[in-house]
C-alpha cells in the first residue's frame, strides 16, 4: 500500500536510483527492491519455495529415517539395557551384602556360644579344683584337729595323773603328819573316788 503510493509518487524522480539498482526483476517488487503487498502472496515465488521445501523435507526424512532415528533408538535401548543390567547387578550385590551380614551375624553368635562354653568349662574346672582343694584342706584340718585333740587328751590325762600323784603324795604327807600310818592302797582309792566325783 504505502510502498505502492511511494512508487507512484516518485516514479520519475527515482529513475537514476532505479538504474543503479538494476531493473525490477519481479512483479512483486517495486523499483527500490521493496515488497509490493505481502511477499507471502506473490505467486511468482511460490514454485521456488515449494520446490526447495520438497527437496528439504525429502533430505531430512532420509537422514532421519536412515541414520538418526535408528541410532538414537539404539542408544536409548542400549541405555535401557545397561540400566536394567546395572539394576540387576545392584540387586545381586544387595543380596550378597545381606548374605554376608547373615554370615557375620552367625559367626558372631557362634563365637559368643563358644566363648560361653569355654567360660563355663573353665568355671566348672575351677569349681572342681576348688572343691578338691577344699576337701583336701578340710581333711587336713580334720586330721590336724584330731591330732590336737589327742594331744590335748594326752595332756589332760597326763595332768590328771600328775594331780593324782600330787594328791596321793600330799595326802600321804598329811596323814603322816597327823601321825597316822597311811597305807598307800587306801589313799589311792580314796583319791580315785574324789577325783571322779
Amino acid at each position: 500500500m504505502a510502498t505502492e503510493t511511494h512508487a507512484a509518487a516518485t516514479d520519475a524522480a527515482h529513475g537514476a536510483a532505479d538504474a543503479a539498482h538494476g531493473a525490477t526483476t519481479s512483479v512483486c517488487l517495486n523499483e527500490y527492491g521493496g515488497a509490493i503487498g505481502m511477499p507471502q502472496l506473490c505467486g511468482e515465488w511460490m514454485g521456488n519455495q515449494v520446490f526447495w521445501l520438497v527437496v528439504t523435507l525429502v533430505v531430512i526424512f532420509f537422514v532421519l529415517s536412515k541414520i538418526a532415528l535408528p541410532r538414537i533408538a539404539g542408544i536409548l535401548a542400549e541405555r535401557q539395557g545397561s540400566i536394567t543390567s546395572d539394576l540387576a547387578a545392584a540387586e545381586d550385590l544387595k543380596h550378597k551384602a545381606v548374605e554376608a551380614e547373615e554370615a557375620y551375624n552367625k559367626a558372631l553368635a557362634d563365637a559368643r556360644a563358644e566363648a560361653g562354653r569355654i567360660v563355663a568349662e573353665a568355671k566348672a574346672e575351677i569349681q572342681s579344683e576348688l572343691d578338691a582343694e577344699i576337701a583336701k584342706a578340710d581333711a587336713e584340718i580334720a586330721a590336724k584337729s584330731a591330732e590336737s585333740e589327742k594331744a590335748i587328751a594326752e595332756i589332760r590325762a597326763g595332768a590328771l595323773e600328775a594331780v593324782k600323784e600330787v594328791a596321793k603324795d600330799t595326802a600321804k604327807e598329811i596323814v603322816a603328819a597327823m601321825g597316822g600310818k597311811a597305807d598307800a592302797k587306801t589313799i589311792t582309792s580314796a583319791i580315785g573316788t574324789r577325783m571322779k566325783g
Binding site: 510502498t3 538494476g22 526483476t25 519481479s26 512483486c28 517488487l29 527492491g33 521493496g34 515488497a35 503487498g37 505481502m38 511477499p39 507471502q40 506473490c42 511468482e44 515465488w45 514454485g47 521456488n48 519455495q49 520446490f51
Partner: peptide, 20 residues
Amino acid sequence: HPMDQFIVKPLFGDGPVGTF
C-alpha cells in the same frame, strides 16, 4: 517496511526467481 524481510531473492545475481 515490515514485509520486506519476507522477500524471496536469488542468492547469486539479480535474475528472476524461477522454480529451480
